Computed example of a mutant assay.
Amino acid sequence: MPVLIRIARTLRRTLLQAVPTILGIVILNFFLLQLAPGDAADVLAGEAGSATEESVAALRARFGLDSPVLEQLATYLGNLAQFSLGFSPRYGMPVADLIAQRLPGTLTLMAVALFIAILLGVVLGSLMASFAGRIPDRLLSIFSLLFYSIPSFWIGLMLIVLFSVKLGWLPSGGAATIGSQLKGFPALLDKARYMVLPATSLALFYVAIYARLTRAAMLEVKNHDFVRTAYAKGLTPFGVTARHILRNALIPITTMAGMHIGGMLGGAVVVETVYSWPGLGRLAFEAVMGRDFTVLLGILLLSSLLVIIANAAVDLVHAWLDPRIGAR
C-alpha cells in the first residue's frame, strides 16, 4: 500500500476519534473545576483587602460566575464554538492571548526535553542491550533508574546548586538575560543557556523509561529471523543494529513518547515553577492559586489537543515504520 494512502487512513481514523474525545474532556474538566472551593471573585476580593459582600457579588455578576452551572457550561461551549476561550478575570485579557504568550516557551521546553530523553534513553538502552546481563548493563540500569526514582523538583534544585551556585556555569532561572539586546545567533545561544537546566530536569525522569524500553525491544528483535538473515548476508553488527534492530525497536519507543506528552505537561508545572520559566505550566499554577478557572480550562483544553496531535503524529510514524499498521 502506498505511503500516502496509509497516512491518509491514519489521519481520518484519528480525526474521527478526536472530536468526541475533546468534547468529553471539556465537559469533564468543567464539572471537576466546579467542585473546587472558591472562585476568581473570592481571590480578587481577598487581595483587595477591603472588599464587601456587594463588591464580591458585583465581581461575580461581571464575570458570569453567579449563573447556574449548566448555564455557565452552555456559555463556555458557545464561546468554544466561536473559537474563543473566554476572558480571564485575574489577568484582564482574553485567555487565548494569554496562552499564546506562554505556549512557545512550553513547547520549546518540552521538545528539547523529549529530544534529550529519547536520545539518552536510546543510547543507554542500546548499550545495555549490547552488554545484556553483564556489568555495564547493570551499572547503566542503576544509573538510569536513579533519576527515575528521584522527584523532578529535587533534581532541579540540585542542578541549580551545582551548575549555578557552585560552578556558576548556567543561570538559575528565567528564559533570557534581562535587558539583553542580543539578536540572531547570540540571542539563540543566550536562550539555550537558560534552557539547559529546566530541559534536563524535565528529561531525566524519562531517560530510564526509554532506556529500559529500548533494551527490551532490541533484545526481542535480535531473536527474529530477519536479523539472522541480515547477519548471514554479511552485514556488520553496527549495520544490522542501525538498519534492522533499532528501526523495529523504535515503534514502542515512539508509542511511549506520545503517551508522555501529557506527563511532560504535568511535569512542566514543577520545572517551570522551580526555574521561573515563562510557560503554560507556571501559568496553570498561577491560575490554580488565583482560582482563574477560565484560564485553567483553556490550558487543559490545549493540553488535550497537544496530546491528541502527538498521538496522531505517532500513528503517522508507525505507518511509516511498519506498513502493516497503516493497512488496518
Rank of each mutant, 00 (worst) to 15 (best):
V69D: 04
L302N: 04
F147Q: 04
A176I: 09
E54G: 13
P171Y: 11
T200Y: 06
G174Y: 07
I99M: 09
I155D: 01
L146P: 01
V207D: 02
F30T: 02
E71C: 03
L11P: 06
L301M: 12
D225R: 12
V317C: 12
I299E: 03
L182A: 15
N79D: 14
A48F: 14
A57N: 11
G262H: 06
A242Q: 12
K191N: 09
P104N: 05
R6E: 09
W169E: 08
D42G: 02
R138H: 14
L162I: 14
A192Y: 07
L302Q: 06
I150Q: 05
N79A: 15
A41I: 06
L219D: 06
K191W: 09
G121V: 03
V122E: 04
V314D: 10
Q82W: 07
R62S: 11
S141H: 12
S172V: 04
A45Y: 03
A61V: 12
A45E: 02
V3Y: 13
A36T: 10
A230P: 01
G184F: 13
R212D: 03
V274P: 01
M93S: 14
F63Y: 15
Y275E: 00
D190G: 05
V3D: 06
T21M: 14
G64V: 10
Y91H: 12
A257Y: 11
A287G: 08
G105A: 15
G298N: 02
I325L: 14
M93Q: 15
G78Q: 10
V295S: 06
A192E: 10
I245Y: 09
G38N: 03
L280A: 06
L16M: 14
I99Q: 06
V43M: 12
F205S: 05
A284R: 00
T200W: 04
V227N: 02
L59F: 11
F30N: 01
Q181Y: 13
F143L: 15
I245V: 15
L219K: 03
N311E: 09
L120Q: 00
L189G: 08
S84Y: 07
G267W: 07
I22F: 13
L157S: 04
L204S: 02
D137I: 11
A117Y: 05
A192C: 05
W169G: 03
L197A: 05
G298P: 03
S50M: 13
V112W: 05
L139I: 14
P20Y: 12
I325H: 02
L213S: 09
P278V: 04
T236C: 09
P151C: 02
T52D: 08
G281V: 10
A41D: 09
G49D: 07
L280R: 05
